[in-house]
Design a protein around this nucleic acid. Sequence first.
RNA 1: GGAGAGAUGGCAGAGUGGUCGAUUGCGGCAGUCUUGAAAACUGUUGAACCGAGAGGUUCCGGGGGUUCGAAUCCCUCUCUCUCCGCCA
Length: 423
Amino acid sequence: MLDVRFVRENKEEIISRLDKRNLPAQELVTQMLQLDDIRREAQQQCDATQAEMNNLSAQIGEFFKTGRQAEANELKARTVELKETVKTLEEKQKTAEQNLTELLYTIPNSPHASVPKGKSAEDNEIVRESGAKPDLGSDALPHWEIAAKYNLINFELGVKITGAGFPVYIGQGAKLQRALIQFFLDEAEKAGYTEYQVPHMVNADSGFGTGQLPDKEGQMYHDATDDLYLIPTAEVPLTNLYRDIILTEKDFPIKMTGYTPCFRREAGSYGKDVRGLNRLHQFDKVEIVQIAHPDTSYENLETMVAHVGGILDKLELPYRILRLCGGDMGFASALTYDFETWSAAQQRWLEVSSTSNFETFQANRLKLRFKDANGKTRLCHTLNGSALALPRIVATLLENNQTPEGIRIPKCLVPYTGFEYIR
RNA sequence: GGAGAGAUGGCAGAGUGGUCGAUUGCGGCAGUCUUGAAAACUGUUGAACCGAGAGGUUCCGGGGGUUCGAAUCCCUCUCUCUCCGCCA
């Protein structure tokens, strides 16, 4: 969530930045600062009253010690009213704080200066395009038909044992998945990321920390018995490892990676673009996360973009990089680059990575801070990116690499799969 | 799942109603000494909020209560450890 103090000092800047999301924030910000004023005033009064109470208590103690009962009792009588006042003021402060927090939860992150203003995906800016789109001819098969032809993925079996959107990978299909995961993790390790194996379920605190709660409550699978959520991305457990932590400057940058399955209810997104691997309830992903110094976080973001691009280059997949416009960006992000690979049979771009800088938005909720050179405690910046999400990589790989001899495996993967063709 | 014990500052570990935000040790930081380092010695070393500042308030697992006053007493939740049961 936004940092109230920053908003207080940079009101106009925040409003103009939020405008990129087409969010008229004038009134929100005013309301927010009003609540903040109420809160601060209540606290000042409350603190002063409590200071008085503390004084009286000390005196009472002194009187009791020296056996001056009468004087002690006289003071005791005076505390009754003060106690009442403290209670009222405390209530007032708590309410203002709660209202402020609730309001803050509804305000998305303010976009970076480079974010284009826009409403939807059409307004995203194409940063660059890489690799040639293959010309497969008219008899090219979409990946779900390839998957059936070579018995790589069985969607019906998934429906039988679980439900739609939970595919079963078989034989060379399963092995391809495992090869990609291993390849992605190795690449991340080479780039200096430390691998973590983390729980696939998280508590509500973690959900709030990275911003999934309360915003995306309905998008996560929730186990009511133990009040745990299945993770929608490894970002949640990985970033929350650093919840409530104060780092020193020499700790930067912190670089973590992890493979996890990801679970998403995808409520309300049933329709035509969900065939095959295009949109699933459970999928595999290798995530990279960085915790960075605010002064360098955008350089860190560029290294992540280069990392993801490098992997796609090695996989020999045609892709493009988009800078998301304000209207298409996620709730918590300040700047997001999406990576899309070209799906030759479907003749469309598929999102395979989303790489973002959240600036202090998550860190504020996480209470993830560092001590700067002057000994001041400041919020860190958090960043993360998919490197990469499996299903659409598999989809484009199967489609783009189909040949009369079978599906060609890119060179970089052969050491992992142990086969050069799926036949 | 049953029984018991516990949760204090980066760590270890005191503290059972009145200058306790907390003794002490270790660690960290700074300095003295040294050619340098180590050792030794000296000092310093939690966080949040409010305040221009002086300073004030809050925090001893979370929440609630008793009291003029709570780390210390009561209730409750969570977690950890030990024993038993179950089990990959």
